[in-house]
């Protein structure tokens, strides 16, 4: 969930193994792990105001893959694989 909306939903193995939504990808790649000293990033910016959420995709101000359409049109959950849904304009 991000800012009150489900952005991705599906089998646990797939969400962890092959996350589709940029927000899910960031969350998983930012987890530190013993044996991995590589610098981990955090998601830039901060969670948006829920009183006045950003237009279009609510994650767009923080998303590095942001396109014009993301600012105007809210993405809907699409089935990217059987039982695996994600809401992102990048995904077809």
């Amino acid at each position: 969930m991000y800012a009150g909306k489900i952005v991705e939903m599906g089998p646990v193995d797939e969400i962890y193994g092959e996350p589709q939504h940029p927000y899910t990808k960031f969350l998983i790649s930012s987890l530190p792990k013993i044996g991995d000293k590589e610098k981990k990033g955090s998601i830039s910016g901060k969670p948006p105001s829920l009183v006045k959420p950003p237009a279009g995709c609510r994650f767009n101000p923080r998303c590095p893959f942001m396109m014009e359409v993301c600012k105007v049109e809210e993405p809907v959950l699409k089935e990217v694989r059987p039982d695996h849904h994600a809401a992102c304009h990048l995904l077809g």
Partner: peptide, 10 residues
Amino acid sequence: DASTRMGILN
């Protein structure tokens, strides 16, 4: 929360 934790550690 997980999304900002690493920012603080960095």
